[in-house]
Design a protein around this nucleic acid. Structure first.
Length: 608
DNA sequence: GCCGTTTTCGGCCCGACTGTTTTCAGTCG
């Protein structure tokens, strides 16, 4: 039973309560939805949590849902859920994943059309739209029938609500649109919002904020963006488009004096904002994207700003009876909190840390002084792809990035095509080439490393004699991903204890949207890393972003060190370090947690 | 059904947009 499956069950229960009697079940519905969100965003497998008896430590999961899930894990079913779902056609549930459908619309349509088969409901409904049956239902019309048909067709193409794309690709699209917006003289500021600003590894919609004194002009200008497929919606405060690449982009505009509130509100996350509002309510304040206003019952008593003093970022709008904030700092200050970095805003303890003034100082791109996972074009007849840039190009790029050192970490020579002696002679030639390169150029310091396959049987693809030629090695799993958890854990620990292996490369092996990571006992790996002074890699390659942020946070808690590296196969890819930084920051990593922030001499000492 | 720096009872985030409506229902973030 995966978190995803449990999420789905809880969402279905919430939908069932909504259909039965929304008014009566109002808060029960919210509770089930929040429980579903909690499971969906959980950092650990819920099943593991249940095994340890810690299910109710998850915020949003209380005694009642705990006992239901307990029944689910023990017997595979939940009597109470079955009762709630009883009598509802199961054809409604696939529709809930389609844009534009909520519980009620799905139920109305399924009931009116008497649809029964959950496997064909999407196709059945497409046919019904084409026969114009929907427009005749009360509350529906021709336009809504068109919308439903289009959303169903898009869902069939895989464009479901949760179609997400890796951060670096989405970031590139967003930067292009922001650059376009900034060309307008009406645009005073433009920033990413939402999961993009929080630097989540995969992004659904792109959200962008603009500060302007002419909202209408900016919205009109946005709707002239060349890459538009169609306009989804348009209003006075923003607009939504679909790009020709199928990405949804939301624009939000706001006047400059309220821009801080807008940034804060739409950066989220939803859970962070809800928590923040709860705190504000207790202070008699109501937060919104427009600012902060005293609750009605307190309105008369409040004559001064929420912060109790003058703040140049704060302004009282007496017409709207609301305090406006030009910056986020002012907004957070009004509820007695320091500014919280967007990467932390997941309601995972950051608000409590902010209240205690214990927010971590997160690692920054400027802290990085070396990139220790780079593939050059030195041909050592490798097991995987060669880089395409020369050592000199790489070193020059490193210098332009302000680095003190780099490591050449080409893949090991393939073991199917070479004997151990042959591998030794190739690596000896490579060691001489690297030394000669450094002596003749001295552009940046250079380490002679290698990225070595961890073979299926737990051996390294390079023997000890050849390993002795290296300054150190990254060990990575590049095949046999489907081994059982225990075997995979032994396989990794076996090589990680080798003195020359210093770093575990892209530790989970995941490829975003393509492949789940393999199963490993991270507790054990963390212990080995601590005991033998090894590092885990945060690999900034766009489809990897591996180590994942939630595991980075676990590693930080345990004191396990990490490196952030690009795995570049071409010099321009060395610019991707910033995405590794994003992952590290979301994992609450400080400069001291990341080894390639160390000066050359210190890093060298760690490596030896 | 969940939860606690006013609370173990009595609250529960806030607003925009669309379509079908003459004041609202549903969905989204």
């Amino acid at each position: 039973m995966t978190n995803q499956e449990i999420t789905q069950i809880l969402k279905n229960v919430a939908a069932a309560y909504t259909i039965r009697d929304e008014a009566k079940n109002k808060f029960k519905i919210i509770a089930y939805q929040r429980a579903a969100d909690a499971v969906e965003h959980a950092t650990l497998e819920i099943k593991d949590l249940w095994d340890e008896g810690k299910l109710n430590t998850l915020p949003g999961i209380g005694p009642s849902i705990t006992s239901h899930l307990d029944e689910l894990f023990r017997t595979g079913r939940v009597k109470h859920f079955e009762e709630v779902l009883k009598g509802l056609p199961e054809a409604i549930f696939p529709l809930l994943k389609v844009t534009g459908f909520g519980a009620k619309k799905a139920y109305k349509i399924v009931k009116n059309l008497k649809l029964k088969d959950k496997d064909t409901v999407i196709d059945d409904l497409i046919a019904a739209c084409r026969e114009h049956k929907i427009a005749k239902f009360p509350g529906f019309g021709e336009k809504s029938e068109e919308d439903i048909l289009r959303n169903l067709l898009e869902a069939k193409q895989g464009k479901i609500k949760k179609a997400r794309m890796a951060l670096p690709y989405t970031d590139a699209i967003a930067q292009k649109i922001i650059a376009y917006l900034k060309k307008s003289p009406q645009v005073l500021r433009a920033d990413p919002l939402g999961s993009l600003r929080r630097r989540v590894s995969t992004i659904g919609d792109i959200d962008i904020a603009v500060a302007t004194n002419n909202q209408k002009a900016v919205i009109d200008y946005f709707l002239e963006y060349p890459g538009i497929e169609r306009v989804v919606e348009k209003g006075e405060t923003g607009a939504t488009i679909l790009t020709s690449g199928g990405k949804q982009v939301d624009l939000r505009v706001q006047k400059p004096q309220s821009y801080g509130s807008l940034l804060q509100y739409f950066t989220g996350s939803k859970d962070h904002n809800i928590h923040l509002r709860e705190i504000a309510l207790k202070k008699g304040l109501s937060l919104s994207e427009y600012g902060i206003k005293p609750l009605k019952k307190n309105q008369k008593s409040i004559r001064h700003p929420p912060t109790g003093g003058a703040d140049k970022n704060q302004n009282y709008n007496s017409k709207l009876k609301i305090f406006e904030f030009s910056t986020e700092e002012g907004f957070y200050g009004a509820v007695d909190l320091p500014w919280i970095p967007p990467e932390l805003r997941e309601d995972m303890g950051e608000i409590e840390a902010a209240q205690k003034r214990e927010l971590p100082t997160l690692v920054e791109i400027g802290d990085i002084v070396g990139d220790v996972h780079i593939h050059s074009d030195f041909n050592l007849e490798p097991s995987h792809d060669l880089g395409i840039s020369s050592m000199k190009e790489i070193a020059q790029k490193a210098r332009s990035l302000g680095y003190q050192y780099i490591a050449f970490t080409d893949h090991n020579p393939s073991i199917t095509n070479h004997t151990e002696d042959k591998i030794y002679s190739i690596l000896k030639r490579r060691k001489e080439a690297i030394e000669q390169f450094y002596q003749s150029t001295k552009i940046v310091r250079v380490f002679n490393m290698l990225e070595i396959d961890i073979l299926a049987d737990g051996r390294l693809a390079v023997d000890d004699k050849s390993l002795s030629l290296l300054d150190g090695a990254i060990a990575s799993v590049h095949g046999s991903f489907n081994q059982p958890k225990d075997k995979m854990t032994r396989r990794i620990i076996g090589v990680l204890t080798h003195p020359k292996v210093k770093i575990l490369g892209h530790p989970t092996g995941r490829l975003l949207g393509q492949r789940e990571g393999y199963e490993v006992d991270w507790k054990e790996i963390f212990e080995v890393c601590l005991k033998y002074n090894k590092a885990l890699e945060i690999n900034a390659f766009p489809l990897r972003l591996d180590f994942p942020d939630v595991l980075v946070r676990e590693a930080v808690r345990k004191g396990v060190k990490m490196v952030i590296s690009t795995d570049a196969h071409e010099v321009s890819e060395m610019d991707r370090m910033v995405y590794g930084i994003s992952v590290a920051r979301r994992g609450w990593a400080k400069k001291g947690d990341i080894l390639n922030t160390l000066e050359y001499n210190e890093f060298w000492k760690w490596l030896k």
